[in-house]
Design a protein around this nucleic acid. Structure first.
Length: 287
DNA sequence: AAGAGGCCCTGATAGC
DNA sequence: TGCTATCAGGGCCTCT
């Protein structure tokens, strides 16, 4: 579900709400996430304090006060909810980009703080939580990841060198976390539309201007999405919380058979499958 | 070694 | 109404 911008929104919310608070109790309802949650999980965290919350790519990184780290990956359907204690109504804290009403099913992990509880919900269980013992192992965990689009390393030389002789199409490269970290299916489509690049273009065939645009618009679109609170795709009934609004800015994602939104283009948005993921592009301005 | 494809899992929706 | 098929914001593993 969440790409870099959505994870960034969750990160900010956690940073505001659970920073420097001790963990009172942990209750695990289901250990069978993408990676099985070890039995010692509760013991390792109970009584500890979360010093700060960071994000890399689509991962949340919680700094624990014993030099360890708790990383959280939301997979396709993971959401985090913070519920305030001692509030009579059943409304949860709505500081997230998603459904502010606490779902009833698939609440797998509860982490209790003094004044609130953290709930990890994930219907498909493609996400996971993992404790990493120290800084070195944390570094190892992210070793094989490419730079984020915001990074200085994500520059013209890097892309030119990386794309050299590569047959793989650009759409698949944007989704390849070894090349660039944090972009997922929605934003890869939106970025390529802005660049006016056909998603099936082989990386080696990209022009200098294409590479410049990929760098420029990756940053621009992700930043705009963060500013808008991320993208909330599903319409939740009676949702009054702070949902993201970037979905209103989708130019191609989910717009198949609709008109291209570029002025005077006259093209139609097409849908096709690339690398077993849906791809959307304008048949006219992304030739 | 690069690249394609299958698979993990549940839920929502479309089509009959 | 109720069945079946398809698709979904991710990423890892295996095969060629």
């Amino acid at each position: 579900m969440p790409e870099l911008p959505e994870v960034e929104i969750v990160k900010k919310s956690l940073e505001r709400n659970i920073r420097s608070k001790p963990i009172k109790r942990i209750v695990v309802k289901n250990r069978n996430l993408r990676h099985k949650l070890p039995k010692k999980f509760e013991k390792l965290l109970t009584g500890k304090k979360i010093l700060k919350v960071k994000r890399f790519s689509k991962y949340l990184i919680l700094y624990i006060n014993d030099q360890s780290f708790l990383i959280v990956h939301l997979g396709m359907s993971g959401t985090i909810h913070l519920e305030k204690k001692n509030i009579k109504s059943n409304m949860t804290n709505t500081s997230f980009y998603h459904n502010p009403i606490l779902p009833k099913k698939h609440n797998h992990i509860y982490i209790y703080f003094k004044d609130l509880k953290f709930i990890y919900n994930d219907p498909r269980r493609f996400g996971y939580l993992k404790i990493i013992q120290n800084k070195i192992k944390l570094k190892e965990h992210f070793n094989h990841f490419g730079p984020e689009p915001f990074s200085k390393e994500f520059n013209i030389n890097y892309l030119k060198k990386y794309f050299n002789k590569k047959e793989k199409c650009i759409k698949n490269f944007l989704l390849d976390q070894k090349f660039v970290s944090g972009i997922g299916n929605i934003y890869s489509n939106e970025i390529l539309f802005k660049c006016k690049i056909n998603p099936i273009t082989r990386a080696k065939d990209l022009k200098y201007i294409d590479i410049k645009n990929i760098i420029k618009y990756s940053k621009l679109i992700l930043n705009k999405a963060i500013k808008d609170g991320g993208s909330s795709i599903k319409n939740f009934k009676n949702a009054k919380g702070k949902e993201g609004s970037f979905q209103k800015n989708f130019k191609v994602y989910g717009r198949d058979n609709k008109n291209c939104l570029n002025n005077d283009c006259g093209g139609t948005i097409m849908k096709t499958i690339i690398g077993s993921r849906s791809s959307f592009f304008c048949n006219f301005c992304q030739k």
